[in-house]
Amino acid sequence: MKPYPFKYVRAEGLAAVFQQFEEHGDDAQVLAGGQSLMPVLNMRLSAPRVLVDINRIEELRGIALDGGEVRIGALTRHREVLESEVVRTHLPLLAEAMPHVAHVAVRNRGTLGGSLALADPAAEMPACAVALGATLVLRSAAGERTVAAEDFYQGLYETERRPDEVLTEARYPIAGPGYHGAFQEFARRQGDFAVVGVAARGRVESGVLSELRLVYFGCEGHARLARQTALAAEAGGRPYTPQVFAALKDALAEELDPMENMHGSRATKLHMAQTLTGRALQALLARAGGAVHG
């Protein structure tokens, strides 16, 4: 189980990466943390001719509080996100999700940008980015552009990133007071990819829920923002009783179309998503200080 041969290029800066793209086009593959790419290479499921290692590009690392947003460089390791005070304070949803991401040795090496760019349908980071309304920064030789996370994810491992672009940063807006998040994931074992999960974020004022975003992962081909279900939740009225959450099941069944896989049929995953939706909303409201009645 050894990779196909490839040429290895260590890029010291983004310019060198773009040059490799220019020279080799689709045959060049960016190597970030490698925690998803390396297994694929070892199993010979992919055969890039050139591997462009971006791990030494310092400008892609770091977590910064910048005005109304938190900027996280693409090469920032999962561990750094997990341990970040800035993230804990300003992006509690991300902090809540991070312990679900793999295990210590993988978090030490795997990167936020790698996870966001790969777009694994069962991964936590894309769902959180969509739930938090993050903006992703893409850079190419031609310049920089930004894409809203919810527009970035297009299909199964399909994103808005063009082959000549590198995802360099994720920018998470800092929510004002009244916004709360909740993260619910079911995995077969600690640290496994989700069977089903939901990242929820919304505003609660005087016990009224608004601006709710429910993002499901492990369900469809990519992190899926369920707008109708969120509207149904908001419209459910006060108090948010278990009956209100029960009513959401129909909305979710209408809106979400989970893919069957080894861990569950469509029906099973939908049932799990319904369960997790209720739990996420209860947790979100509980954090807002509102009692869940019933």
């Binding site: 189980m1 290895y8 260590r10 190597l31 490698g34 925690q35 390396m38 297994p39 070892n42 199993m43 591997l51 290692d53 791990n55 561990r79 295990h103 210590v104 040795a105 993988v106 030490n108 090496r109």
Partner: peptide
């Protein structure tokens, strides 16, 4: 396993535990 799951290859790289099968030797230069 050579796909990063089992942990038998865990080593320390620049002070942190990593999977030895998910890092290339050239990256350790």
């Amino acid at each position: 396993c050579e796909h990063g799951v089992c942990g038998a290859c865990t080593i320390r790289l620049d002070g942190r535990a990593v999977r030895g099968c998910l890092t290339l030797a050239v990256q350790a230069d």
